[in-house]
């Protein structure tokens, strides 16, 4: 069934069962997002970027968690929404090694796109920068992981689990120290990994790369 929505005073049509974020993206209405994957039953909703305001709901909500309803009235650019998005982006950038010209994702990076869209400088002034000690985690036989580029969106973990039934990559540690890790499993035969590169493709920034030799 087709539904009609009013997004930023613009009427859009979409199919029932879609998420609000998907419906907007399908209609060329951009909402910043990092962790969203299409057709995932329960969205991760971890990046806290895709906020919108929906008529009747007091606070901004992540649009990836909302199912479209007919005649929904949505605003994607209210001050409240932008405030949250900018803070989220600044927080991510405050732990990001902004060294774009040496990063393979340069000009193909979601953080750059979002920063441009939200008009936020890549080097936020108000927040101190905290980087992790490990620049590159090279323990994996096929992959290199750059913890200081990672936004912990979890796309790689999800894609890998879908592909191999178990995840080679997973979250490790807690709180601020949370990282994507392979738990230093180096024995290729015990890994479900097949250097398929799905995780690298899924990464919205340049946090994963296939090793050049492999």
């Amino acid at each position: 069934m087709m539904l009609k929505l009013l997004v930023d005073n613009q009427e859009i049509e979409t199919r029932e069962g879609k998420t609000l974020l998907q419906a907007c993206l399908d209609n060329q209405i951009y909402i910043p997002n990092l962790c969203y994957l299409e057709n995932v039953e329960r969205p991760s909703a971890s990046c806290r970027m895709c906020f919108v305001e929906i008529e009747g709901i007091k606070q901004p909500v992540p649009s990836c968690t909302v199912q479209v309803r007919d005649e929904m009235v949505v605003k994607t650019d209210t001050p409240g929404v932008r405030q949250l998005q900018r803070t989220a982006l600044r927080l991510l950038l405050s732990v990001h090694d902004v060294d774009c010209k040496n990063c393979h994702a340069n000009k193909n990076c979601e953080l750059q796109n979002i920063a441009k869209f939200l008009k936020v400088g890549l080097k936020p002034k108000r927040l101190e920068r905290y980087l992790k000690e490990t620049q590159i985690d090279e323990t994996h036989p096929f992959l290199n992981h750059y913890p200081n580029r990672c936004v912990l969106c979890g796309k790689c973990v999800h894609i890998c689990r879908g592909k191999h039934g178990q995840s080679v990559l997973t979250f490790a540690k807690r709180g601020f120290d949370t990282v994507i890790s392979t738990y230093s499993v180096t024995d290729v035969s015990s890994l479900a990994c097949s250097d398929c590169g799905s995780c690298v493709k899924a990464c919205p920034v340049g946090a994963l790369a296939l090793k050049e030799s492999s």
Partner: peptide
């Protein structure tokens, strides 16, 4: 709370760390 954050979402993981600092 910062140590016990699961690290999933941006605000809690990084935001509380800034507050703590």
């Amino acid at each position: 709370t910062q140590k016990e954050s699961c690290g999933k979402c941006t605000f809690c993981r990084i935001g509380t760390y800034h507050l703590l600092k």
